[in-house]
Simulated assay, not measured.
Amino acid sequence: MPLFEVETTSHIMIASAEDEDSARSFASTNYPGEEILRVAHRPRDAWVISKNLLGVQADSDPCSTARECLAKAQGDKIHAVRLYMQSTGTDLEKARKAVESNMSRGW
């Protein structure tokens, strides 16, 4: 089954759907309050995320850094965010997102 990239006002999702109408239906069912901005058929059966477009440098791994900070903070999110900011020099919002997105992996 082909993959479709569906962008709404707040999300970008990848849906396995028979056609574009099914992909739109998937988005409307799961996020009924959001406007669908774009639907694109993915050319292959894989989804690739470019680290360069996300701003991830080759010499850094934000996920492992966030997990290290969580381990040092013994799962205390606020302390882990502070450690992440100190370690990477990022602002509060980026540090919070990095730590929170890695909290499900063991904390």
Rank of each mutant, 00 (worst) to 15 (best):
A23V: 01
C63E: 13
E100G: 12
G33T: 03
E7F: 02
T90M: 06
I78V: 09
E100F: 09
D76G: 00
S10F: 10
G89K: 04
P2Q: 05
K77R: 15
N30I: 12
D45C: 04
A71D: 14
I14S: 07
K51E: 14
G55M: 11
S64V: 10
W107R: 04
L37H: 00
Q57I: 05
P2R: 07
P43L: 13
S60D: 08
T90F: 01
Y31M: 02
L92E: 11
Q74K: 15
V6S: 02
P43H: 06
V81M: 11
T29G: 11
E68T: 09
W47P: 00
M13F: 06
L37I: 07
D76C: 02
I14V: 15
S101G: 05
I12R: 14
W107F: 15
M103K: 10
A40Y: 05
S10C: 10
R44D: 12
A15T: 07
T8E: 13
E100K: 12
D91E: 12
Y31D: 00
S101N: 03
V99Y: 01
Q86T: 15
Y31L: 15
V39S: 03
I78E: 05
A46C: 08
L3R: 02
I78D: 09
L37R: 10
N52H: 08
R38E: 08
L54R: 15
M103C: 15
C69S: 08
K97Y: 02
N30G: 02
A40I: 09
I49R: 14
D19H: 11
E100P: 02
G89M: 07
A71W: 04
